[in-house]
């Protein structure tokens, strides 16, 4: 009698729903997730900011809404403006931190801390919802040096956490980007010293990111203060009418004449109509 042992058949492939969900949970940009998985090196340009990737990790982030490393370091005299300009001119702002470290102008701990602060701050805006698709340029320039870099998933998690934090403070995002004006609060609300500095710069013209720049503070930290001041009734965005007593009805808007249609807007309209 011969007994033959045959190896058991391989198990049928089963779609692991938990894993599939994990892969996309919290993905703010599917493109970014893909780039992280392929450990790409290059620059991702999105509507509100730019992420520099090296081997799939974020090594630098920039946004017009966030002050950036240069402002954070020079605003309070940590670094002389001329020294920053030399570092930024030599290899662009993305590499300035490494140049400063090599030059030994700042202690590594202080630089690493400020670099991470600036990265998460600009990353928050770079990953904010956008109306246009992002573009990735493969480029060998971004490099991983001795300064800390951040995994894409970690930046996405933190960005979602920050959105939730702001939403809990005050659920309306209008004050994040509009010019701010002081309001008369119904009651008296205590203002923290950091909040007071922000309130002192509310002048009906400046926006929260501009106040952050003026104070040499992270934009997200300033948004936290602005949302808290808004919740306390001390500040409001100017676009929101204060006491509209007897506002006459607005005239009907003129017929839309579009000569240069925004493709992204049209796509969103199409998607919305298809979803009906």
């Amino acid at each position: 009698m011969t007994v033959t042992f045959s190896p058991p058949p391989p198990p049928l492939p089963v779609r692991d729903r938990a894993t599939a969900q994990d892969r996309t949970t919290g993905a703010l940009s599917p493109m970014l997730r893909r780039l992280a998985e392929e450990e790409a090196t290059g620059v991702l340009e999105r509507e509100h900011g730019t992420l520099h990737l090296a081997g799939g990790r974020v090594v630098h982030a920039e946004s017009p809404h966030a002050p950036g490393l240069g402002v954070l370091l020079t605003a309070h005299g940590t670094l002389a403006t001329a020294a920053w300009q030399r570092a930024a001119e030599a290899g662009g702002p993305a590499d300035a931190a490494h140049r400063l470290l090599e030059a030994g102008l700042l202690p590594e701990g202080a630089l690493a801390l400020c670099h991470l602060d600036a990265l998460y701050d600009a990353g928050y805006f770079a990953l904010s919802p956008s109306s246009t698709p992002g573009r990735f340029r493969y480029d060998s320039t971004p490099r991983r040096g001795p300064l800390p870099s951040v995994p894409v998933v970690q930046l996405e998690r933190e960005t979602l956490h920050r959105r939730l934090l702001l939403h809990r403070l005050w659920p309306d995002a209008a004050a994040d980007s509009a010019a701010l004006v002081r309001a008369v609060p119904a009651g008296t609300a205590p203002v923290t010293p950091r909040g007071r500095a922000v309130l002192d710069r509310v002048d009906g013209v400046r926006t929260a990111p501009e106040i952050a720049r003026a104070l040499g503070r992270q934009a997200f930290h300033t948004l936290v203060d602005v949302r808290r001041l808004t919740a306390a009734g001390l500040v409001r965005p100017v676009s929101v009418p204060y006491h509209p007593p007897y506002a006459p009805p607005a005239p009907p808007p003129p017929p839309l004449t579009v000569t240069d249609p925004d493709i992204a807007l049209l796509k969103r309209l199409r998607d919305a109509l298809e979803a009906l």
Binding site: H76, L113, R217, Q218, H221
Partner: peptide
């Protein structure tokens, strides 16, 4: 608390 010369809250 870490006292930095730049603005931070760490």
């Amino acid at each position: 608390f870490v006292d930095t010369t730049f603005d931070s809250s760490v």
